[in-house]
Design a protein around this nucleic acid. Structure first.
Lengths: 206, 206
DNA sequence: CGATAACCGAACTCGTGGGTACAGTTAATA
DNA sequence: TATTAACTGTACCCACGAGTTCGGTTATCG
């Protein structure tokens, strides 16, 4: 009857490390870097501070590792297959996926933390950009380039066109999510996506 | 010879208050809320902590007041006259002004702080949005609406069109500024602005 | 000139959080 | 089942920052 804690087998080694990292990710995303204490993470994970420090050395390292990994998975799941299909279909589906992705609460939280902590941790910003916006930009640029060469679109400057499209899709919902904690009904996202595609095709359609 | 300090007449009352607020604004923008200490502000202002607390009560109040005022002046100077002129001119000039505004270091700093501190201070986000992006959106929407009625443009949904335009102009430069500390030559901003206008007019031109 | 209220500097309290130490417990492995 | 390394919990150290206090200085106003 010495079962003080919640009768749970506590794993060792890498498994424990991963559990703690997962908890730390959640807490950092919810409260930001400086509002998160190591004790808080330890409590949530049912761990002791000593274990945190044995695995990660210090708070900054834990934060970096965890946010870095998360930044590398911004797009996980969504939008992984290569862009293919007719331009209207591809663009609409990309637009809708983007809107869904970046109005999700945890995406906004990640963006918030990255923006806030990049001055203290410049590499974090670069990783996030490369894995998130940068990757999408590259893929869309490639798609526009190829499609242009096939004559299905008329896009003199694919990279510029891609930036304009992605911007037109995402900006306002993101700003409103960040600054006003706004949420959006799916119908509105669909209308927005549809019109963004129409705008794009009005100039770059073949 | 008791002239320890830098032989400067230190004003009293409101003037001193304003000096301190100005210093606090700079420091908060540079270091964020939690990385800024009251002592640091006091040192920069050549003031004592007691004076800070007499004028502002506590750190949170000082931060709120100073960031709130700053948020209300996001657009000061730029873009204050009513939008008027032919659509291509108005749109191009708006686009260029926006790009200049939000690639400026202090604009990025303000945005960064607002995004970071909005969870702790929701009103800050609302004020910023209302005085910054929201105001621009409203003004452009009104302009598009009027111009549409005059038959110079064909804009069924002015608010949506305005969001698409502003987004296409701003997004990527802002993200790159925030996450990569990138800077941009003026020529690039001009090209971007020009193409954003062309894109818009391809769909909404009369 | 005074008088006085605002100011400064410095020393203080107090809570908190990063990080460490240690004694007891438990999962893993042979 | 015996051994051991990894774990937990607690108590601890130390630095630092918010906010206060106070004696001395100085701008301001009559």
């Amino acid at each position: 009857m010495t079962q003080t804690r919640s009768s749970r087998r506590v794993p060792r080694g890498e498994k424990r490390r991963d559990e703690i990292a997962a908890v730390a990710e959640r807490v950092f995303l919810e409260r930001g870097y400086s509002e998160t204490t190591m004790q808080h993470i330890a409590d949530y994970a049912g761990a002791s501070k000593e274990t945190l420090y044995r695995h990660f050395g210090c708070k900054g390292t834990l934060f970096s590792e965890v946010m870095r990994r998360r930044s590398s998975e911004v797009m996980s799941g969504e939008e992984d297959g290569a862009l293919c299909g007719s331009p209207p279909e591809v663009l609409f589906s990309l637009a809708l996926n983007l809107l869904h992705l970046l109005t999700r609460a945890d995406s906004l939280r990640l963006y918030r933390v990255v923006v806030a902590e990049t001055p203290r941790e410049p590499e974090l910003g670069r990783i996030f950009y490369g894995q998130g916006p940068g990757r999408i930009l590259t893929r869309l640029t490639d798609y526009l380039d190829e499609t242009g060469k096939k004559g299905e679109l008329n896009v003199p400057n694919p990279s510029l066109a891609a930036r304009l499209f992605i911007g037109s899709v995402t900006t306002f919902h993101q700003i409103q999510g960040l600054a006003m904690q706004a949420t959006f009904p799916d119908a509105e996202l669909q209308i927005h996506a549809r019109e963004a595609v129409a705008l794009f095709l009005a100039r770059y359609g073949a």
